[in-house]
Lab assay of single mutants.
Amino acid sequence: MQIFVKTLTGKTITLEVEPSDTIENVKAKIQDKEGIPPDQQRLIFNGKQLEDGRTLSDYNIQKDSTLHLVLR
């Protein structure tokens, strides 16, 4: 499925993911596309910070959902 990740600069990254993917996996995909190390990434969905060990389906993230990427 496709999800979107919006950065603070207003750029939107499109990712191909599975609901069973962990947040860690998603961060690795963002690193592949953008070169941002996962330990600098914080992903936010519906105002909640997403934890590495959880999956997209844990957070009820579905296709065409938009996550927000904050760098630390």
Rank of each mutant, 00 (worst) to 15 (best):
Q62D: 09
V17A: 03
E24N: 03
L71I: 04
V26D: 00
G53A: 13
I23P: 02
I36G: 12
S57F: 08
P19T: 12
E24P: 15
D21H: 15
N25V: 12
I30V: 10
G47F: 03
D58A: 06
N60I: 05
E51A: 02
T22A: 07
M1P: 05
L50V: 09
K11P: 13
P19E: 04
L43F: 04
T66R: 01
E51R: 02
K11A: 06
G47E: 14
F45T: 07
T55R: 03
H68L: 10
A28V: 06
Q62I: 15
K11I: 04
R72Y: 15
D64K: 04
D58T: 14
Q2Y: 15
V70F: 07
R72T: 13
Y59H: 08
Y59K: 01
G47D: 14
D64L: 09
T55N: 05
L71F: 09
G10W: 03
K27R: 07
K33G: 07
K33W: 09
Q40K: 05
I36Q: 04
G35Y: 05
V5T: 06
K63T: 09
N60A: 06
Q2D: 05
S57E: 12
I13Y: 03
K6A: 13
T55K: 11
D52I: 06
T12Q: 10
G53I: 06
R42I: 15
F45D: 08
A28T: 10
K48T: 09
H68I: 04
T7D: 03
K6N: 11
G35R: 08
T9M: 04
E18I: 05
K27A: 15
P19S: 14
E34V: 03
V5G: 01
Q49V: 04
V5W: 01
D64S: 04
L43H: 02
E16V: 12
K48F: 13
K27T: 07
K29E: 08
P19M: 02
S65P: 01
V26N: 00
N60F: 03
T7I: 07
V26T: 08
R42L: 11
L8T: 08
L43R: 00
T9R: 02
V26Q: 00
S65D: 14
K29Y: 07
R72G: 15
F45V: 04
T22Q: 07
Q49P: 06
E18S: 06
E34T: 10
E18K: 10
V26M: 09
Q49S: 10
F4I: 09
L56W: 08
K63D: 05
E34K: 01
G47V: 05
Q40T: 08
L67F: 02
K48W: 11
T66K: 05
I30L: 05
Q41D: 13
N46I: 07
L67P: 01
I30E: 00
P38K: 13
I30K: 00
P19Y: 01
E24M: 10
G10H: 10
D39W: 04
N60H: 10
S57K: 06
L56Y: 01
F45S: 13
I36T: 14
E34D: 01
E18G: 07
G53E: 12
R42F: 12
E51V: 04
G47L: 06
R54K: 05
I3F: 03
K6S: 12
F4S: 03
